[in-house]
């Protein structure tokens, strides 16, 4: 019996969600069905370590909370720029709005703590469960034809992860003050989840063929 680990390709094939097939369009066909990859999300890769340990102090917890919001804001801002460069202004505007919201959250934490500048990260970096903060969107979830609904799905996924993150911190906390603060954050994230769910409900769902592009990709270099 072979005990070899699956190859990268085999592993990809055995993934829970089958990978969307790359589009192979015979030359000359008018409609190229582009990669139908709706923004999807899943378990973040555990590339960094065991995940955040219980915060030892309120200050430590707050610095995590700050980093989480700041990182999320930064990523949404990047997304806004990317979508702008690709002429998807509606989604760009939505990401900009999300970036503003997350930025505001991070500012609130500074204010609350009376910090005049962002807390410095520990030398080993933040020990998130995945490679990035739990509210930070995955770069590969973007699609140039994505619609506001997709963007909100991304946001919802992130808020849910943040909620879970603080729930876990609250559970692991040994100090009552830390537990209290983590619970407060968890509750806030629960509220965000609810708000985004409402927002989603108001947002039109994309048509099935949202990713259709009649033209092939452009040639560059």
């Amino acid at each position: 019996m072979s005990t070899r680990k699956p190859t990268r390709k085999r592993a990809a094939k055995t993934a829970k969600r089958p990978a969307p097939k790359p589009v192979k369009q015979p030359a000359g066909k008018a409609v190229a069905k582009r990669a139908e990859a709706p923004p999807r999300r899943g378990a973040a890769p555990r590339t960094r370590g065991p995940g955040a340990d219980a915060a030892r102090s309120v200050a430590e917890l707050m610095s995590y909370a700050y980093a989480l919001e700041a990182e999320a804001a930064e990523r949404y801002a990047e997304f806004a720029e990317v979508m702008e460069a690709h002429n998807n202004r509606e989604v760009a505007e939505l990401f900009r709005k999300l970036a503003r919201i997350e930025h505001k959250h991070s500012e609130q934490i500074l204010e609350e703590m009376g910090w005049t500048s962002p807390p410095r990260p520990p030398s080993t970096g933040y020990r998130w469960e995945g490679p990035e903060g739990p509210e930070t969107a995955d770069i590969t979830d973007l699609h140039y034809l994505m619609q506001p609904y997709h963007a909100l799905q991304i946001a919802l996924h992130n808020e849910k992860r943040a909620e879970k993150f603080f729930a876990s911190l609250a559970r692991k906390a040994t100090a009552a003050s830390v537990r209290k603060a983590a619970t407060e954050f968890m509750d806030e994230e629960t509220e965000h989840v609810r708000l985004i769910e409402e927002w989603l409900a108001r947002t039109p769902k994309p048509a099935k063929d949202w990713a259709l592009d009649p033209d092939p990709p452009a040639y560059h270099d």
Binding site: K16, A19, P20, P22, R40, G42, T47, D138, T140, P217
Partner: peptide
Amino acid sequence: SPCVTFRPEQREWKHHVRP
């Protein structure tokens, strides 16, 4: 570094990588 245009299945890489 996934290519979402020509190799969209590479979005799955995030489920397979590990330290």
